[in-house]
Nucleic acid binder design. Structure first.
Lengths: 153, 153
DNA sequence: TTTAATCCCTAGTTGTTTACTAAGAAATCA
DNA sequence: TGATTTCTTAGTAAACAACTAGGGATTAAA
């Protein structure tokens, strides 16, 4: 039940982009340095985020990436599910037409539980936007707390 | 963010034991057959459940396993965390004294999110007991729905 | 027009984890 | 004594995670 580095790094990168929202394209080199992630690996994470329409890219020198819309319009859920797939404890709650997949899934006592877990996770991550993270970040800076984004494992 | 077979099989096995609660020890062979799990593998799952005090064993012929207390007193959360470890999206929300683990974890904008996810999952699984599953199971049987426990993946 | 910076894409690699299988020792009932 | 069952450990094949590596395409600036 752990997130992989894909989701964690991707969220860090998107938060980084959110801090620079409105300031033109930010290069992956910059993000990678600040967030201590390899550029090559970061490229592999930003690619699905771009395809999902969460970021836009500018190619060539002085190019980079920027959020495709305001931080308040991008949820943590959209980022994490883009990089990790559905945040579900089992596949059965997420794959439909499960007749060949799982015979009695609609009546399964355990599936009911997995669905509740899925809903609760989804509800949390969909209610948090990048803007919330920025607000949190800036509040803590005001109160003189060194508030960084850490190497959360 | 998926449960492994350890948690899923373990929950199925515990539900099976709950259906026979009060009827003496049930052998792993029986459970394994009903739930379509290899006996050898099931042995490896029941072992931590016993060490966690969730089931008791009777050795020797006609032996087996039984719940250590009523189904209403055993939560799904206790079963899943015994087999999967803490149902947390990251280690940082669960390991304390994280100074060497994660420098700024107490001020981390992403950790706040991971903690909320952790809390919501924990709250769901801790609120469901094996008795709830039995009630659900029997309700559906009453209404003539073939309610099985499926091969949830 | 060249150069450097950057995005973009794919393939390969290494280590870890998962999901078992296998096998044998210890205990207990008939 | 023999069958049944728990208990424990070791091994293994396949999948997955977390990258590394390298090269092509695009563009701004010198």
């Amino acid at each position: 039940m752990k997130l992989s580095t894909r989701g964690r790094y991707g969220l860090k990168a998107m938060f980084d982009l959110a801090l620079y929202y409105g300031e033109g394209p930010i290069s992956l080199t910059n993000i990678a340095e600040r967030q201590a992630i390899s550029v090559n690996y970061l490229e592999q994470l930003i690619s699905p985020l771009r395809k999902a329409g969460l970021v836009e890219s500018v190619r060539g020198a002085q190019g980079g990436y920027m959020l495709s819309r305001a931080p308040g319009a991008i949820t943590v859920g959209s980022i994490l599910t883009t990089l990790e797939g559905p945040l579900a404890p089992t596949d059965c709650v997420v794959i439909d037409g499960g007749e060949d997949f799982c015979d009695h899934s609609q009546y399964c006592v355990t599936k009911v539980i997995y669905e509740k877990i899925y809903e609760s996770i989804t509800s949390v991550v969909n209610s948090i936007t990048l803007q919330h993270m920025i607000d949190d970040y800036e509040n803590n800076q005001d109160s003189m707390i060194v508030h960084t984004i850490c190497e959360c494992k």
